[in-house]
Design a binder for these strands. Sequence first.
DNA 1: TATATCATGTAATCGGTTACATGATTAA
DNA 2: TTAATCATGTAACCGATTACATGATATA
Lengths: 213, 213
Amino acid sequence: MERNEAYPITYGILGLLAFWGPLSGYDIKRLFDHMLAAMWGAAHSQIYKELRRMEELDWVDMKREEQEARPDRKVYSMTDKGREALSKWQAQPPDVFQMRDELLLKVLFGTFAAQGDLAQNLRTGITNHEMRLLTYRQSTQYIPVQGIFPHGDKRYNPYAAESEEDPYFRLITQFAIEFEKTYLKWLYEALDFVENRHEDVALEENGDEEDPS
Amino acid sequence: MERNEAYPITYGILGLLAFWGPLSGYDIKRLFDHMLAAMWGAAHSQIYKELRRMEELDWVDMKREEQEARPDRKVYSMTDKGREALSKWQAQPPDVFQMRDELLLKVLFGTFAAQGDLAQNLRTGITNHEMRLLTYRQSTQYIPVQGIFPHGDKRYNPYAAESEEDPYFRLITQFAIEFEKTYLKWLYEALDFVENRHEDVALEENGDEEDPS
DNA sequence: TATATCATGTAATCGGTTACATGATTAA
DNA sequence: TTAATCATGTAACCGATTACATGATATA
């Protein structure tokens, strides 16, 4: 049995090519950051490497566009074989989700943190997740048009407003927004908890629950 | 400048040793699955390797317990240096969270899936996350006692009921439950959408009113 | 009888990150 | 003047996974 020939990032690239036709590695990196930030991240070096691999698999075609003063643009487009692979992938059960969140680990072991460190980490988390929430709420401008595939040779401008929106992208954006809202709600509650319980244990006697946030 | 000497899994192990005193690699693996499943996963091979590394760093001490008919138990306990490292880690800002969820990727590119594949994947996700939610709701039996650190030489039975619960573990469990509830709510809505193929736009960002459950 | 669990590890590989490299153009 | 962006890659490394290995004991 042969080795795995593809993994999530492969299909991430393939999906972007299916939506937006021929793209360079640089284009793909930009779209990754805008479109796939909510579910998968990728460094540009990995995208370039993966594109080379996908070319060997005949999942993509490369056309070199010469430029003066800059390296040539290597523009990739999905092949029939690539389209088939993308469809086959959808027929396999998804990997079990695995959370990897260092902030949660730090909260769990908050007992071993010095005064104030945990609160500071929670505030950092709040800043990060507030920024994400904002990004996702503004991300509708990136919604791709529907039904390009399987005639995906045309190139669409991801920044242009389109009349027909892809319903799955809307679905993902909704998930990302709800996730960030849930995360933030918890972060604020956790921060409130660690700030108020460290002040003085004796305060628990009288009513200190009036706290307008 | 020297290489990183530790990363999240290192502190995961260290934190478990701080809570529950001397433990073997096998014990740690079991606790990882029960306590840290919501925020970090680890294979047993990685834990054994990491323990050897931590021994070289003098973050843990190892004592060999001989057994007949089985390999010796190598029982690790945290050193002062390890305790210091755990505390220093809490003073550093946490890594930015990076989601890696293949199911979300498949939903985003749902346009390229054959009839029924997407719904099937969503159902798999529902099964997985329902199981997680159940696990987290039952996980209160694993809540560790508070304030062992910094005198953490005693060993506590993680299965025993304790009067004083660690508030941070409770916090994490709450997060995990809220996360799974949010995820599941979205999964059911997404499944309904792909099964019924509404023309109207489902899933507007819901209001602030909470359902009183 | 077959599987699972206890209990421990090693080896090989892989997916992903970090660092290095180039050089023009544009914005602060 | 400094930094960022455009645009492309290579090389080294590292954290994590998968497969391999052993052998008793308990459970179905």
